[in-house]
Design a protein around this nucleic acid. Structure first.
Lengths: 341, 341
DNA sequence: CGCATTTGCGAAAACCTTTTCCTTCTGGGC
DNA sequence: GCCCAGAAGGAAAAGGTTTTCGCAAATGCG
């Protein structure tokens, strides 16, 4: 048999050692009520001597606050949810709030199940992190606790969501290419049914239009989010406009494939064609030849920010609406100003 | 202000509605004690009508079990810890046990902090998942709760750890190459100071020796875990033995780089050189040209198994020692029997 | 000095459930 | 008819903390 867990030290022991009542001990330790400085010190000394740790279950039972939040991820095998999740965990972990991890794996039924158990466990709040930036169904309706959405926004505008600002990010990427002197810029990206693909195209086209430049090839080259597609798209882009001098890609995978194929067709990157990716997925962006200039969505920061807003909401200062968080261009050799090349 | 949370329905309400005492209600709901079938049904009906959910805090306070385990990851930004973590979460989530996520980010001090808060929260057990297969310091000493280690084993043999069986896995990889008729097999891998690199080399050399074959190039080519190194290693391997007909790589990243460089030097994969990787990191292994035959460590299963053993330990059936979990060869075109090519 | 106010502290309730007795009741055996 | 066993259910304690309320002492004010 497992050895009996030693009886934990309770506030009773502390009170006895400090020769006060448990009420006074509690007040002293929590800085509440009226308690003389000398008494308070005695209580603290006793608590330290016994290395007292208040039982959070008992505390929660009476206060109704568990200092626990649920982290509900819809599909965390994907690589975008993870950093968001970790950022959120970091924000909570530095406080005294613990994180209950639930991975629904994209299954709405499982999500409901987790939601119920989280509510049964009386979590103080909920953070829902999605796998893509497509809006997802709200779960906040009739919930007695606050919820924030990260990466994938809620479809209910009354909720509060944090998503990367892909439109501005893509605009910045294209403006960077323009600033480098490129004038024939193409855009290769993923499937149209992804919000991310549409918004990135929107940002790219907006920046081109503002600069009075046409899109090389005349239209956005939609496809899938894979390296293989990037290789194939290289042909399309080069055939459509042999003089193309830059490609903005909707993902690093696409960019990696495109760079590879362009090399094989004898185009030098970045001399002949500058390439900018999206995601800053370092395992790819640092391994392409040359290393990839790419847009980083600051996902950890996004997760942390979402967590902080959840805190605020738990304390009664709720916000709402979709907040777009800035992205950051990471400049490497595939599209760099001359000084850096 | 946030609306007051509606007073939750308690077992008192259920008991009142069923016209029994709370003791009887509790016994009926938990199937304990002597309760007439008719009474039990009445209690259940009342509970369902009020949609009663027992307060887990109150329950834990009296039973001493929180139905909660801590998941302590040392560095989950890495890609190996994640699947293990998800596998564990899955195993717990399907029961009634919740998972408290703590990411220590490789910081021993932070790990100690999390350990303290988890103990303060009275978790029933702990699962420690590491980032590499190198042994890590045990934290089980003097802990009142069971601990299992996943991916990174504990350095204390009295603990229980679950790690991939890299020696056998690598042996299988090389035996697969031998079965394909390859006779000049090289091995390129990561840094010697990684247990993973050493064990994989050990398994590969053992399989070669058993088959009476020499190692192409005469020695294991140690380096780093990157695609760039894989490209560089291709030169080394081809220079050392221009007739090399297979390379077993210690990671998919190395394999991806090696395939790329071999292509550029005019070697056909798999006709001239068969390549086997390790990890089955699908974003790479499916995108190489040709797709990569590689060893999958079944990390989710590993995490699930570790979680199940933690359950057993919580119930008093503890085990110990390092358990090596089997790996599984995923055959794709880079090293396939003729029928599949 | 007398009264009102503040300060310091303790008793007890409250949070919600499980579990340990204890009582009552039912039926069977003699 | 009596006794006993077992079944059914209830009262109350236990688990550890916070918080309310009340009491007594100390202090301030006139």
């Amino acid at each position: 048999m497992r050895p009996e867990r030693p009886r934990a030290v309770t506030i009773n022991d502390v009170a006895a050692l400090a020769k006060v009542s448990i009420a006074t001990a509690s007040k002293a330790l929590n800085g509440r009520g009226q308690v003389r400085a000398e008494t308070r010190d005695r209580v603290f000394a006793a608590a330290r001597e016994l290395s007292f740790q208040p039982n959070p279950l008992a505390r929660s039972l009476v206060t109704g606050q568990t200092r626990t939040v649920g982290l509900l991820t819809s599909d965390s095998v994907g690589r975008f949810g993870i950093p968001v999740m970790l950022g959120a965990e970091d924000a909570f972990g530095s406080g005294e709030t613990a994180v209950l991890l639930c991975d629904a794996r994209g299954d709405a039924f499982r999500e409901q199940h987790y939601l119920r158990t989280l509510l049964a466990r009386r979590v103080d709040g909920l953070i829902v992190v999605g796998e893509s930036t497509d809006p997802r169904p709200s779960i906040s309706r009739d919930l007695p606790i606050p919820v924030v959405y990260a990466y994938a926004p809620s479809d209910d505008p009354a909720d509060v969501s944090f998503v990367p600002d892909d439109v501005t990010g893509s605009g910045d990427a294209v403006r960077h290419l323009i600033a480098l002197g490129r004038r024939r810029i193409a855009h290769v990206t993923g499937p149209t049914h992804y919000t991310a693909a549409r918004e990135r195209a929107e940002g790219a086209l907006g920046a081109l239009e503002a600069a009075g430049l046409p899109l090389s090839g005349g239209q956005v080259v939609y496809g899938v989010w894979s390296q293989r597609w990037g290789r194939h798209a290289a042909e399309i882009v080069l055939n459509a406009d042999p003089d193309v001098d830059a490609v903005f890609c909707g993902s690093d995978q696409i960019a990696a494939g495109l760079i590879e194929a362009a090399r094989e067709r004898g185009r030098r990157v970045p001399d002949d064609i500058a390439v900018v990716g999206y995601d800053n997925w370092e395992v790819l962006s640092q391994e392409t030849r040359p290393p990839l200039t790419t847009m980083d969505m600051n996902l950890e920061l996004l997760g942390r920010t979402a967590a902080q807003h959840l805190f605020a909401a738990i304390e009664g200062r709720a916000t709402s609406g979709v907040h777009r968080m800035p992205c950051r261009l990471v400049i490497r050799d595939s599209a760099a100003p001359p000084a850096l090349q």
